[in-house]
Design a protein around this nucleic acid. Structure first.
Length: 210
DNA sequence: ACATTAAGTGATT
DNA sequence: AATCACTTAATGT
């Protein structure tokens, strides 16, 4: 049994289920900025995130992106779940934010486990629920927050999932995630800096008082 | 030293 | 808030 599987999912699943996951699944290691799942892909494995973080994006008709939410360790990707139920295709793109370790489980076990293991059923329902809540939060931010508030929230979220207040990123990258222009981000960041909420240097932003 | 990339700025819509 | 056009600063080769 992989220690990270035990560590992140041990308390969630019954022992017997954990054994079975360990047996039928396999470990997959990814570097940062690798595409885990792309728009239009179909899904043959459910990934459990053991280590690292993944960002989930939507794409507009011009190919510009918009960040929907982050998936952290101990989570799974809800899009994957809804895809492998039928033979639906992915509506989103998932990209690793850091080096990431996944435990891949073939979809064929999914249905059987729903009946067999209450802890699995709970996990799946819980995953859907938390993802739904996160999406609502994202919609709220898009609809009700001004750009500067959104930006601060983005930085704080990112710092949280990465586990560090120092973000190695460029203004342009942030602009892509937030579906706006670099100039706007630069100006707002500067405002946040004078408000003592962040500290900037080239290629890095430190989020103060989290 | 030069080229490239990141970030800052003023003006306009 | 977006876009343009341009400048300045930091970094790689």
């Amino acid at each position: 049994m992989h220690p990270l599987l035990q560590q992140n999912f041990g308390y969630l699943f019954q022992d017997k289920l954990l054994q079975e996951i360990s047996k039928v699944g396999y470990l997959k290691k990814l570097d940062a900025n690798e595409v885990v799942l792309d728009i239009g892909n179909s899904v043959s494995n459910i990934p459990l995130v053991l280590e690292g973080a993944i960002k989930v994006l939507r794409e507009d008709t011009d190919g510009n992106e918009l960040l929907l939410y982050f998936v952290e360790k101990g989570d799974t990707c809800a899009m994957t779940l809804s895809c492998c139920w039928g033979t639906a295709r992915s509506k989103i793109r998932a990209i690793t934010e850091t080096t990431t370790q996944l435990y891949m489980i073939p979809v064929s076990y999914l249905e059987q486990w729903m009946e067999q293991y209450p802890s699995w059923r709970n996990f799946i329902l819980e995953s859907y629920h938390t993802r739904m809540m996160e999406l609502i939060e994202t919609v709220d931010a898009l609809a009700f927050l001004r750009m500067d508030e959104r930006l601060l929230k983005y930085l704080q979220d990112k710092a949280k999932v990465l586990g560090t207040p120092v973000l190695q990123t460029t203004h342009q990258d942030i602009a892509f995630d937030m579906h706006t222009s670099r100039v706007v981000i630069s100006r707002l960041l500067k405002k946040l800096e004078t408000e003592q909420k962040i500290k900037m240097t080239r290629n890095s932003i430190e989020v103060l008082h989290l």
